[in-house]
Design a protein around this nucleic acid. Structure first.
Length: 283
DNA sequence: ATACAGGACTAAT
DNA sequence: ATTAGTCCTGTA
């Protein structure tokens, strides 16, 4: 991948395996928006970023090269070779199509606490509603960051402390019955009973067990946290869409051993393609 | 209106 | 091991 430094920021020159639209509609993140055609804005950790798709299909990251390399390079998982992953599905006709349709998907390396709370909120919900809930949560309980011009500020995702200490505010964010799950999880993280940074370093099985021990966290949510927040790339969340795909194309039995080490990436291609096919396709 | 949406819990088999 | 009923709430 060719990376150029220019006055306005950093340019990814006509990148393979990078498509903002695919990435932010693949259900892994909820704080990015296309604010106008081909311009996206999002917050990750404590930083705001704008990305623009230029006429020549290059992407402009509007940040310093220092910030690009210290934060966004890791966040967008640029070190990983997605071309190689896509080639590895050769011979599987469904996945061969999936990696063409979702050729620019990447697994974002997001904040584990944000993933835990966000995917607790996601249960039995839908993307627009999840985004609304998370945005309200950030506005009510997250720190406000002024940008250097005193306008266009933004809210950070709430800290464990903020969530643990304000149960009544959480209940007013429209998260419904999930409010108690959120408060409980935040308290466990705040006290150190659940150490998310530690879970990054242990086996996927051990991290999984620690996550599902939380009240209101089951297999699906735990796998999402593993995959999107803890870099356990073998997390394989099975949700509605994955179920549909597995039932229709794999007789419900999908052998993931072929993709050991990056099964979650395969899941993401599968999920994205399944959604583009639509529910009627699976009837 | 009543069912449903990117689950999980609990209490029953 | 599997299954039904329940949990909030916005949307259609």
């Amino acid at each position: 991948m060719q990376i150029l430094e220019v006055a306005e920021g950093v340019i990814l020159s006509r990148p393979d395996s990078f498509n903002m639209n695919q990435i932010i509609t693949s259900g892994q993140c909820f704080r990015w928006d296309e604010i106008k055609t081909n311009v996206w804005k999002g917050v990750a950790f404590d930083t705001l970023l704008e990305i623009e798709l230029l006429d020549d299909n290059s992407y402009l990251f509007k940040c310093t090269k220092e910030t690009f390399y210290s934060l966004w390079y890791d966040y967008f998982d640029f070190e990983r070779d997605y071309e190689q992953i896509k080639r590895s599905v050769s011979g599987d006709s469904f996945l061969e199509k999936a990696v063409v349709v979702g050729d620019g998907i990447r697994i974002l390396r997001q904040d584990p606490f944000e993933m835990l709370i966000t995917f607790i909120i996601s249960q039995c919900s839908n993307i627009p509603k999840i985004k609304t809930n998370v945005n309200i949560l950030c506005q009510k309980l997250g720190a406000y960051v002024e940008d250097k011009h005193g306008k266009d500020g933004y809210y950070l995702f709430p800290t464990p402390k903020a969530l643990a200490e304000n149960p009544e505010l959480i209940a007013s964010c429209g998260v419904g019955y999930r409010d108690k799950y959120i408060v409980n999880a935040a308290r466990k993280v705040l006290t150190g009973e659940l150490n998310l940074d530690h879970l990054r370093t242990v086996s996927r099985e051990e991290a999984f067990d620690a996550l599902i021990s939380l009240y209101g966290v089951g297999r699906k949510v735990a796998n999402c946290v593993l995959l999107f927040g803890l870099q356990h790339l073998d997390g394989f969340p099975i949700d509605l869409w994955i179920k549909k795909v597995l039932d229709k194309h794999y007789q419900g039995l999908f052998d993931t051993s072929r993709y050991n080490g990056y099964r979650g990436v395969i899941q993401q291609y599968m999920f994205y393609y399944g959604r583009t096919l639509g529910a009627s396709y699976f009837e």
